[in-house]
Design a protein around this nucleic acid. Structure first.
Length: 469
RNA sequence: CGGGCUGUAGCGCAGCUUGGUAGCGCGCUGCGUUCGGGACGCAGAGGUCCCGGGUUCAAAUCCCGGCAGCCCGACCA
């Protein structure tokens, strides 16, 4: 018996499919204020896994966590001209507090370069204080006209790193290291999403940056998603906030700063990069629940066996839950499929008679039978290979949705469904406007060998054009 | 901010033309039978019909005025 679709099929209406998944996998709800988001326990569990994986990688680069305030004096924003211009349309501003009109309005942080810059200026005296490597996990507010759960909400959660360095080279090396060793490594190893890693064209740069690095992923509908960015801020913020240090020679020098962030948008990326018509598919390395043990019948022997299997999986280091009894078998299967749990372990009377369990992997629906005694080891190795298979599947998807072209017209055609790759020299400023008319943007610039350029002015760069979120 | 549409149970909707006891599906509660791919029976709970005004013996329904939301066109992690 084929079960009817619990979700709108992707091919019928992808945005609708996305909303269905978010709702039925119990990931999030809309908040009462338009554009706000309530993250439900299952969605938050996924976010916590993202957090811990990224946090560990950030700490490996030497940065330390700290916390800066939600409220920022409006005057701070104005100190960096491009920065304020870039963010003004999205700001939420507090004009009244404590029952009175405020003398100076307070901005709810859209990002924290300004406050953190102010304190860096205070804390940095000498070249011995550099580099200063900070990170914070926080919420930020950017007022959105077209909100979508996880992908674009007026308030969202993220980490934002902020660093100060003595030299341009050091700052650049660090921003690059974050992009490669933290973001791209996380995306490939944990989220199983292959990316194109490169720099943004000047038109797409962060407000106030001299260079923005990005990882661009390909979703199942052929649209690109910016997964994480890091910015070289040059001396722009150092100049605005007097972030100065005394060099070995005794001279007063301006620092070079960086900032970098990854947000709850990654949850949206997870959904759209791997999901299918049955729902979410969560890569094992990320999954808060890697396996679910389902009792086919609510009988004492079955329940006992389920608990035994669950304990074995747990002992093998598998994040596992037991689902016995509640509701019909088919219903429970569907519910866990929508949530994207990698492995389903069915335990029923037929299996018990043979001393086995029936295992179904979420990504391929392939069914396997394992002797009960070997469940722990089998699960661990299957989860590991599923992780590789998911990445490989996503890589094939991305590659098959990347077309090398030789003209802007061909790029517009090819980018209707995926990335169009063409020489950056073929795209002039007026061409970017032409792309925009087609709802297309230059997602990133790369060297011909796929490595990250240090500037958009390098020779022989290629660019990737796509529709995007 | 311009154009199109919608506000009725938690969700999705019908009812409105032609005014007269507020309905359907899903979900929810209880009991029982079920359980190897979204089970079924019986019994229930749940409503300021977006708000305000008007017409009328009587308004979810007709009229006027608000408000809110959705979709499409200018910004963005």
């Amino acid at each position: 018996m084929a079960s009817p679709n619990a979700l709108t099929p992707q091919s019928e209406d992808f945005p609708r499919w996305y909303q269905d998944v978010v709702a039925k996998a119990e990931m999030a709800d809309n908040g009462p204020v338009r554009g706000t988001m309530v993250i439900r326990p299952y969605g938050y569990a996924i976010w916590e896994r993202i957090q811990s994986e990224i946090d560990a990688r950030i700490k490996r680069t030497g940065a330390q966590n700290a916390y800066f305030p939600l409220f920022i004096p409006e005057s701070y924003l104005s100190k960096e001209a491009e920065h304020v211009e870039g963010f003004s349309p999205e700001l939420a501003v507090v004009t009244h507090a404590g029952g009175e009109k405020l003398a100076e309005p307070i901005v709810v942080r859209p990002t924290s370069e300004t406050v953190i810059g102010e304190f860096m200026a205070k804390w940095i005296q000498s070249y011995r204080d550099l580099p200063l490597l900070l990170n914070q996990w926080a919420n930020v507010v950017r007022w959105e006209l077209r909100p979508r759960l996880f992908l674009r909400s007026s308030e969202f959660l993220w980490q934002e790193g902020h660093t100060a360095h003595a030299t341009l080279e050091d700052a650049r090396a660090y921003a690059t290291r974050i992009q490669v060793e933290v973001y791209n490594a996380f995306l490939e190893e944990v989220l199983a999403v292959p990316t194109y890693i490169g720099i943004k064209p000047p038109s797409e740069r962060f407000a106030g940056a001299i260079n923005t690095l990005t990882c661009e992923g390909m979703m199942r509908d052929g649209k690109a998603l910016q997964m994480a960015t890091s910015h070289e801020l040059g001396q722009n913020f150092a100049r605005a906030f007097d972030i100065l240090y005394q060099s070995e020679g005794g001279a007063s020098e301006l620092c070079y700063t960086t900032s970098w962030g990854a947000s709850t948008r990654l949850v949206g990326g997870l959904i759209m990069a791997h999901g299918d018509d049955q729902g979410l598919i969560v890569p094992p390395a990320l999954a808060p629940i890697q396996a679910v043990v389902i009792g086919v019948r609510d009988e004492p022997e079955v329940n006992e066996a389920c608990e035994h299997v669950r304990a074995q999986l747990e002992d093998a280091g598998v994040r596992v839950v037991l689902d016995a009894g509640r509701g019909s078998f088919g219903r429970r299967v569907t519910d866990w499929e929508i949530k994207g749990v990698p492995l389903r372990v069915d335990v029923g009377p037929r299996d018990l008679k043979e001393g086995v369990v029936s295992v179904t992997r979420r990504d391929t629906s392939a069914k396997i039978s394992w002797p009960v005694a070997g469940v722990g080891g089998e699960a661990s190795s299957l989860l590991a290979s599923m992780q590789r298979d998911l990445f490989e599947r996503a890589r094939v998807w991305r590659d098959s949705h990347t077309t090398e072209v030789g003209s802007l017209a061909q790029a517009i055609e090819a980018a209707q469904n995926g990335f169009a790759k063409l020489p950056w020299s073929l795209v002039g400023p007026s061409d970017e406007a032409a792309l925009k008319d087609q709802a297309l943007t230059v997602r990133c610039l790369q060297r011909a060998d796929g490595t990250i350029p240090t500037s958009d002015l390098e020779e022989d760069l290629v660019c990737l054009v796509a529709k995007s979120y």
